[in-house]
Nucleic acid binder design. Sequence first.
DNA 1: ATCGCATATCGCAAATAGGCGATAAATGTT
DNA 2: AACATTTATCGCCTATTTGCGATATGCGAT
Lengths: 108, 108
Amino acid sequence: MRRTDKHIDYSEDELEMAQFAKALGHPVRIKILMLLESQSCCFTGEMTAMIPLAQSTVSQHLKALHEAGLIQGEISPPRVKYCINRKNWAKARNLFGKFFAEKSAVSP
Amino acid sequence: MRRTDKHIDYSEDELEMAQFAKALGHPVRIKILMLLESQSCCFTGEMTAMIPLAQSTVSQHLKALHEAGLIQGEISPPRVKYCINRKNWAKARNLFGKFFAEKSAVSP
DNA sequence: ATCGCATATCGCAAATAGGCGATAAATGTT
DNA sequence: AACATTTATCGCCTATTTGCGATATGCGAT
């Protein structure tokens, strides 16, 4: 996209939230995270089995979640076990929590 | 992208959350929402003045937020006043709240 | 050294998103 | 009716995302 050299200064929170949100912006990735949440950890293969998408596609979604910091994977050859990244999960919870915090009053 | 005819069945919640998340997946849109939250309502022009992006670009982001149901606009000629859509805001809060709900224990 | 398994990465195609300027649309004002 | 103001939409371009199959990689087992 054509980009100007204007720069917008975003706060850390804004950038971080947008990044988390972006990672959450696809139903498959939501599903994967719910899976990991419900059973703490999971091998890639189990997910690939449950999700009717090509193995390479699932792998890419896992990569996206990993890069966003929402999951972490430890190798357990020949497999990889993915878990929620609890530290960043908490960070995300706080960010979204603050963001959606109930305001005293409602519509003007 | 090449698409198979496989279909994945997503729950309503998964789809809705992904949709909200997608809308939140850009820092400018986070900024806009924070603005609207802080001062209840705002005209497009005020936002355009605060954000160093072309008017048409800001308008598109507003459209995206509107389509995601996060904001609503009422015309007040020749301007348009945008506010948070409280109903869906609450819905989003609930979805994200449930999603990030603290689990009793931590890492295995 | 080779095989087999599970996963990641590559390269491609198609769709979507993000940016802009220019223009259209809506409406109150003169 | 013509104008000014504000916002939305259009067309264009580039970048990113999403999907796939094919291939590479890593590593234990043979």
